[in-house]
């Protein structure tokens, strides 16, 4: 190991033990919310950061997706053919004419980076779960649904299941046992990308998606 490392650690060690570690109670104190309250809080919090939230059912969300794609005049929609949403999306797109082109590239993003950066209008992804308290979706991107899907295209459409709503972030970590193994990248997303760097005035659509649309399956 490096000399720098040894020197730094030696200085920390030399300090002795005057400061005892603090006993921490890490049991998350979770609010007592029922399913409706969780849904309500999630929707309110997400909307407060300019997310479009559409309540849908497990059966009709692909129809809603198609309608939104049309309404927003998307030219194309990126999706994951091997992902959990693929089957229903494909079926819906087969059933309707005049929908935006469904795009997929089942190769490493490096191979079609230019297209992804400059030609794709929107992407649809699933989510792992979500947080009611602060209004955030949890994504653990997979080989099927890579990280850039929820980042690069100007519109991100995410499917969230109300049954997967946790009260708090701490609850999600505990209930899903994150310490057992973290993914390459875990993400919390709350709203479209934004900045307040100019005069503390919020402006949406900086580097990530300009629009975030949530289809909430209740």
């Amino acid at each position: 190991m490096s000399k720098a490392r040894d020197n730094i650690l030696a200085r920390l060690r030399a300090r002795g033990v005057e400061k005892a570690p603090v006993e921490l109670d890490r049991t998350p104190a979770s609010p007592d919310w029922n399913r409706e309250e969780r849904i309500d809080r999630f929707c309110k919090a997400m909307r407060s950061v300019r997310t479009e939230v559409h309540p849908v059912s497990a059966a009709d969300w692909p129809e809603k997706l198609a309608a939104l794609a049309k309404e927003k005049q998307l030219r194309n929609l990126l999706y994951a053919p091997a992902g959990p949403l693929a089957e229903k999306i494909e079926a819906t797109w087969r059933a309707h004419a005049g929908l935006p082109e469904l795009v997929t590239r089942e190769v490493d993003v490096d191979g079609w980076k230019e297209e992804l950066f400059f030609d794709i209008d929107a992407a649809v992804t699933s989510t792992r779960s979500a947080i009611a308290e602060v209004g955030a979706m949890i994504l653990w991107p997979t080989p099927e649904e890579p990280r850039t899907f929820s980042l690069v295209p100007p519109v991100h459409i995410a499917v969230v299941e109300a049954n997967q709503l946790h009260n708090t972030f701490a609850d999600a970590i505990a209930a899903e046992d994150w310490t057992a193994g973290m993914p390459t990248n875990a993400l919390l997303i709350s709203g479209p990308s934004k900045s307040a760097d100019i005069e503390q005035t919020l402006a949406y659509g900086v580097h990530g998606p300009v629009e975030l649309i949530v289809l909430l399956i209740e």
Binding site: D108, T184, L187
Partner: peptide, 18 residues
């Protein structure tokens, strides 16, 4: 909460596309 909370635990693993 911030718009993004980004937790990185490793570089790209085999099979991952980005």
């Amino acid at each position: 909460i911030s718009t993004y909370f980004n937790m990185i635990s490793s570089p790209r693993k085999p099979g991952e596309r980005d």
